[in-house]
């Protein structure tokens, strides 16, 4: 019996390993191969649903939006619900817009530059470059997940870890989970991802009040 059991465990282990390899078949499992496999990605458009989980809330707070990316470093991170806002990075300039009663308003607050790292990291992830941020340790797991953990203790107090769940399709990220602590985490699930379908130039231009 013991021998049969061990054999079953071994088969299960092999099956799991195989499943894992299928997960990473699209992206591969080492940074250099991943980069090569997604080198063809020039642009991405994806809708997303963001779930904010808080221990104090019975159900997550849902936000919805759309992401546009164009290599190497143009990004539009737009929330459509519950509050419309747009975060733009293009030509090394970062700008933010929020919908108000008087239309879309540019926010020129001093903390915009603090968003730069966040936006630049997303651009890097879209290009399969998970290990370029020197402040984060990147671990590519066979399950098709990239786990990023802050090296700096102060940063780790804000974000415990980030988990990127990769799709089987190279260049497509299924979800991003940002774990702040066990009581608070955010999951951003991407869907309807379109790669290299062309993005209008205006998408990355500064918004005017009527957009």
């Amino acid at each position: 019996m013991k021998k049969i059991g061990k054999s079953a465990e071994y088969k299960a282990f092999l099956a799991a390993l195989l499943a894992c390899s299928v997960f990473l078949a699209g992206w591969a499992d080492d940074p250099e191969t991943i980069r090569k496999k997604v080198a063809f990605v020039e642009s991405i458009r994806a809708d997303f649903i963001q779930e904010k989980h808080l221990e104090m809330m019975d159900k997550p707070l849902i936000s919805k939006g759309v992401l546009f990316f164009r290599a190497p470093a143009s990004l539009r991170w737009e929330y459509k619900e519950p509050v419309r806002s747009v975060l733009l990075m293009h030509n090394d300039k970062i700008s933010r817009y929020v919908e108000t009663d008087d239309g879309i308003k540019a926010r020129k607050s001093g903390n915009l530059e603090t968003m730069r790292v966040f936006l630049e990291d997303i651009c890097m992830w879209m290009q399969g470059r998970f290990d370029v941020n020197p402040d984060l340790n990147a671990e590519i797991k066979p399950s098709g997940t990239v786990v990023l953990t802050p090296k700096d203790k102060a940063m780790a107090e804000v974000i415990e870890r980030i988990e990127l769940r990769l799709s089987e399709t190279p260049g497509v990220i299924d979800s991003v989970a940002i774990h702040e602590n066990p009581a608070s985490y955010t999951i951003i699930r991407f869907h309807d991802t379109k790669i290299n379908k062309g993005i209008k130039e205006g998408v990355f231009q500064e918004l005017n009040f009527k957009d």
């Binding site: 963001q50 904010k52 936000s63 509050v83 806002s85 966040f118 974000i159 940002i178 702040e180 955010t186």
Partner: peptide
């Protein structure tokens, strides 16, 4: 209080 991205 959290940011739009959900960071507390």
């Amino acid at each position: 209080i959290m940011s739009a991205q959900g960071i507390v």
